[in-house]
Amino acid sequence: MSFIRTLTGDIDPDQLGVTYAHDHLFCIPPLWKEKKIDDFMIDDVEASIKDVELFVKAGGQAVYDATAIDYGRDPVALKIISERTGIKIIATAGFNKAVMWPGQMQGQNMTFQMWIDAHSRAEIRDHIASEITAGLDGTDIRGGVVKFGTGYNTISDAEDKVLRATLDAHKETNAPIHSHTELGTLILEQLAIVKAEGVDPSRLTIAHVDRNPDPWVHAKAAETGVYMCFDGISRIKYHPESVLIDCILKLVKRGYEKQVMIGGDIARRTMYRNYGEGGLGLGYILESWVPRFVEEAGEAGFDGKALIHTFMVENPKRAFAFRT
């Protein structure tokens, strides 16, 4: 038996539906707030709700919100968004990456780096596990995924400790795992640690794999059974959509379609349609990218609609499940 833990309760995986596998619906990153980088302040519940309504109108039903505590998560705001729009939201336990850790922890006279340095691997494990079993940030709203991250071709000592503690929390709670990769680097190195710690790679989803559009790396990762999130859609400054679609179809040709997931990683006001900046918005993937993918997949000899159903319905309900 398996279940998915959402902000409004545990559900059968078949209830999840069409899912974005990596986005940020509400977040106030402490470090970026301290640096007064306003574009990263996704801090207006009403504006977020309006964008979520675009997602729902386009057929969306669920979102994995990948906002960890060091990126400024707010489980209460997320739950309001879920209840007001009817979408299912999976929230994040754990941490993001070391570059965010100079930020001040809310309500405490220390940075995230100071807190991590002061706590052992076992203590960090217990903290992350409690976010799954008890609640996030002093609430009874529970996370549904444990997360870790690494830097650009670097894994600091603190990141290594948090990574292994997160894997320990997974072992304790059976929660699914999500990882941040900086520009898609260290995908295989993360997997080596996961396997060395005795964790099944099929319990992990790796984010930002499309930032490093290397089909060989993607194939080697896929061999382990890991899920891979293509969440750079619309980020033309990195790669055009054609590159992402080509990478996805290369995985499909190798038989790895059951390990591909899709998200937008929308985390800037300028990416939202309703934060006053006129961005593409949360509905963009379903409104515009999916039809393009279906067309290009068809030209390559595949059933594009069936692949989208696999990527956005079948794969998330397995990847985000607690398996008992």
Rank of each mutant, 00 (worst) to 15 (best):
H208M: 11
F230E: 00
V226I: 02
L204T: 10
L186N: 14
G225I: 03
R235T: 03
S202T: 06
H180Q: 09
V217F: 03
V194K: 00
T205C: 08
A165V: 07
R235E: 07
A221C: 08
K161V: 13
Q190P: 00
L167S: 04
C229L: 07
C229T: 13
K195L: 02
D210T: 12
N212D: 12
K195V: 13
V217T: 15
A165N: 04
A207G: 15
W216S: 13
E172A: 15
G232Y: 01
V162T: 08
R235C: 01
L186P: 10
D160M: 13
H218T: 09
E189G: 05
L163T: 12
T173W: 04
L191H: 04
G232Q: 10
N212Y: 13
G198P: 03
K161W: 11
Q190K: 08
E197Y: 06
M228H: 08
H218I: 06
L204V: 15
D168V: 01
D168R: 05
V194G: 00
L183N: 14
I187H: 07
A192N: 07
A169P: 03
A196R: 09
L163N: 09
E197Q: 08
K161N: 08
L163S: 07
Y227I: 03
E172N: 07
K161E: 06
V226L: 01
A192P: 01
V209F: 11
E172Y: 15
I206D: 03
P201S: 03
R164I: 08
M228D: 08
R235M: 10
L191Q: 02
G184A: 06
V162A: 09
H218W: 13
E189T: 12
Y227Q: 05
Y227A: 05
